[in-house]
Every structure is written in C-alpha cells, then in structure tokens.
Design a binder for these strands. Structure first.
Lengths: 185, 185
DNA sequence: CACGAAACTGACCGATCGGCCAGATTCTGA
DNA sequence: TCAGAATCTGGCCGATCGGTCAGTTTCGTG
C-alpha cells in the first residue's frame, strides 16, 4: 500500500510540474524506484492514475456546490471562504486542473472538472451578469489558481505561511466577488 | 507565403486549444491541407514553429518593460494600461504562455517568456512587497491571463466587445494593483 | 522556352509512448 | 509448511511522434 500512495504523490507532483502528457509512466516508475509495469499494476492505466489523483478534490468541490445549491439563497461570502479552504486543501491539484483542463478535456475526469467549474460559475449567476461581473469572476478564480500554481516558479513565493496566504486570498476574493452582490458598483 | 501564415495561425489555435505536446505536426498539416513534410519545410522544427508564433508577443512585452525600466520612477497606472493593451493585442498567445509555460520551460522561447514574466514581477518590486501585495499581483495577472484563456471554455464569454473587456480589465487591475502604490491598505 | 530556385511530397528512420503478458518473487494465513 | 493471493518484473507489441531525405512539381524570370 505504501508504494501505491507513493506513486500517487509522485505522479501528482510530476503532472503538475511537467504536464500530464510530458510525464511518462517510465519516469514515474523511476522516481518511485520501481518498474513501469508495476505502476500499471497499481493503476490500470495512465488515465485512471490521473483520475485517482484528481477525483477526491472534485468530490469535495461537488459536495460544496450541492450543499449551496440546495440551501436556497446563496451568500457569496460564505461560499468564498469554504471555496478558498478547499483550494488550499487541494492546492497541488488545482493547477493541474486549471492549467491542463482545456488540453485534457477528452480525459473523463478532466471533463468532469470542467463541468464543476462551470457549475461554480452558474452559482454566481454569471451567465446573466454584466461583462464586469463575468470578468471579475474570471480574474478572481483564475488568479487564485494561477497564484497557487506559478507564484513559486516566478520566485514570488518564499516560504509564506499558509494562514497568511489564506487570509490574503480571502480579502482579495472578497473584494472581487462579494461587493457585486449587494452594492451596485 | 500564404501557407506560411496559415500554418502559423492554425498552429497557434491548436497549441492554445489542445496544448503544444498534444498537437502533432501531422494534425497541423491536415488542418492546413498540406503534408507534414511541408510544415517542416516552412519551419525547421516544431520548437521553431512555436518560437515563431510566440516571439513577436515577447518582443513587444520586452520593449514595454525596457521602456519603463529606463524611465526612472514607475507609475503603475501607466504600466497597467499599456500592459493590458499588449495582452489584448496578443490575446491568443497569452494563454499559451501562461498555461503551458511551466510545462515547456525546456523550450528556449518559453523559458524566455518565463524570464519576461519575472521581470514584470520585479518591476512591481514584489520581491520586497508584503504577502498581500505578492498575492494581489499573482491574482491580477494570472487572473487576466486565465480569463482570456478559459472564459470561453466555461461558457462565460458570449461575444463581448473587446472595448468592453478592455475597460473592465483596466478597472479590475487598477483596483488590484494601483492602490497598493500610494495608499497603505 | 529554359532553367534555377522555391515549394512540396511520400517513404522512411530511430525513439518513445501506453499497455499487455507470462512468469518470477514475495507475502499471508490456515 | 505450503498453497494461493498479491506484488513485481523484463520483454514485447502496435502506434505515434518529430525529423530526414531523395526526388518531383510549381513558379519566377531572363
């Protein structure tokens, strides 16, 4: 069971860093100190390995969405806080979905990810919103995802404590999303 | 010369939509109604095709950065406006660099793109900024780039006139970036 | 018309990919 | 102890990739 988890961890890191297509099963096997055939013993295929990695995050996100959909009126500020917590909890998976979702939408699990993001957008009733509102949504969530993904690559990260990141992201998202709820801008 | 430009256009669209690695020269050739060997006649290699597509945008961006670096004091509001205009001008290239830059940093032209983004970050003196300021920068530019890239995929786009996008993005970026310049938050 | 340059093509190459399989090895519990 | 399940491996397969090359067709121009 140890190797099984190691493979998940290693594959996630490699998929996020180098891309799904560019990461071969052989490389994952090498990093884990095993053979390619062994990887395919634990995960029936490369796509199922990806699904195994991404699905838990999608499950959590779907659960949050459904809770809010059945809660009648949606308070954006509530959603934002829980949403940020989920993003931080699965912060390694987020860039994988964001950056490579479009490329991999023929892979079922990534198609599901795209569908979930669409539902988040609908939750904010963005289809009927103004251009300004649509763009605020895009900048907010795209921006958060990108920041989680690429800040380190640009040398902007250092070792920022995660609580600090959390509160800063909450402020930024709140500024971008919540004002549009009540106040006419 | 017509085919040469067609190949650039087709390849850009495919690279952005499906990813560089996932787009084969054969597919580009098919879409252009020619042969793979013909593509490699016009562009010596797949990497050079990518470079040919991305370089003009990088040149423009580098020119803007150098102008501002030699201008002494930087006024963020000036930079933001010119920056947004460049992003919109090259709006097909932006998602290519943003979404696949990390994956392809072994390709010289993409490494150059990453370097340019790092210089933009330095222009904003983000290395010495607070966590809040760093994250604002990440959210702002990542968000804009992601919005240009993926808004359509999530069905948020419709046919928004580009002037409207421009002014909305300017407002959002201004809110995110410029206040930090003078006012202590 | 002629001739060199430019444009184009089909066939082929080595490398790498995901996946399969027969068999070897290790683990586990009656 | 030992049989069966779980785990692991090397070798192989077909497909596809980027790239090369010899040779053909098309084009521009004197």
């Amino acid at each position: 069971m140890a190797l099984h988890d190691d493979l998940r961890t290693i594959a996630l890191a490699e998929f996020a860093a180098s891309g799904y297509a560019a990461t071969s099963l052989q490389r994952i096997a090498d990093l884990a100190g095993t053979s390619k055939a062994s990887v395919l013993y634990h995960f029936a295929s490369k796509e199922l390995l990806l699904a195994d990695i991404v699905s838990p995050a999608l499950d959590d996100m779907e659960r949050l969405i459904e809770t809010l959909e059945h809660a009648g009126g949606l308070r954006r500020s509530d959603f934002v806080e829980q949403f940020v917590d989920l993003l931080l909890l699965h912060r390694e998976v987020v860039p994988l979905v964001i950056n490579q979702g479009a490329t991999l939408d023929d892979v079922p699990v990534m198609h599901r990810a795209t569908e979930i993001m669409r539902r988040v957008a609908e939750l904010f009733r963005l289809a009927s919103g103004s251009t300004m509102e649509k763009l605020r949504f895009g900048v907010a969530f795209g921006g958060v995802a990108y920041t989680l993904a690429a800040a380190e690559r640009l040398g902007l990260s250092g070792e920022i404590p995660i609580d600090e990141v959390r509160s800063a992201l909450l402020l930024i998202l709140h500024d971008l999303l919540v004002p549009a709820e009540s106040a006419a801008h």
